[in-house]
């Protein structure tokens, strides 16, 4: 019970949701458009950056993380960190099996 949050349960209103909806739709249009432009090396990076932005918006507002307890935020951060560990440390093996020719 010691984690009980002092502030009351925050109710997010429709205004915020509509704004996020339009931001997400705009992001979708942007990322499709960007994929048709040849940016070489930057293409996948931009695609992932836009996807991450969209995901963050969903997390923060639709999933109310912005208004959640520190515990929830910490748990999510820990999970994302471990997800990245799985990906990056596995890739560390594959990348270094043959330097440069990856």
């Amino acid at each position: 019970m010691s984690e009980q949050n002092g502030h009351a349960h925050t109710i997010v209103g429709p205004g915020v949701y509509v704004a996020i909806l339009f931001a997400l739709l705009a992001g979708t249009v942007l990322t499709v458009w960007a994929s048709f432009v040849d940016l070489g090396f930057w293409n996948p990076i931009i695609a992932l950056a836009i996807a991450t932005t969209k995901a963050t918006l969903v997390l923060l507002y639709f999933m109310h993380v912005k208004y959640s307890t520190k515990l929830t935020k910490l748990a999510i951060a820990g999970g994302v960190f471990l997800f990245l560990t799985l990906v990056s440390m596995t890739l560390a093996d594959y990348i270094s099996r043959a330097w440069g020719s990856w």
Binding site: T31, V32, S35, F36, D38, P44
Partner: peptide, 25 residues
């Protein structure tokens, strides 16, 4: 349930970027 549904949405956002938009130019 809303959290679950939004999570599925997030997964799709990444799948869309990774599977569909690899290289369209």
């Amino acid at each position: 349930f809303g959290l679950y549904w939004h999570f599925i949405d997030i997964v799709w956002i990444y799948l869309f970027a990774l599977l569909y938009l690899i290289s369209r130019h």
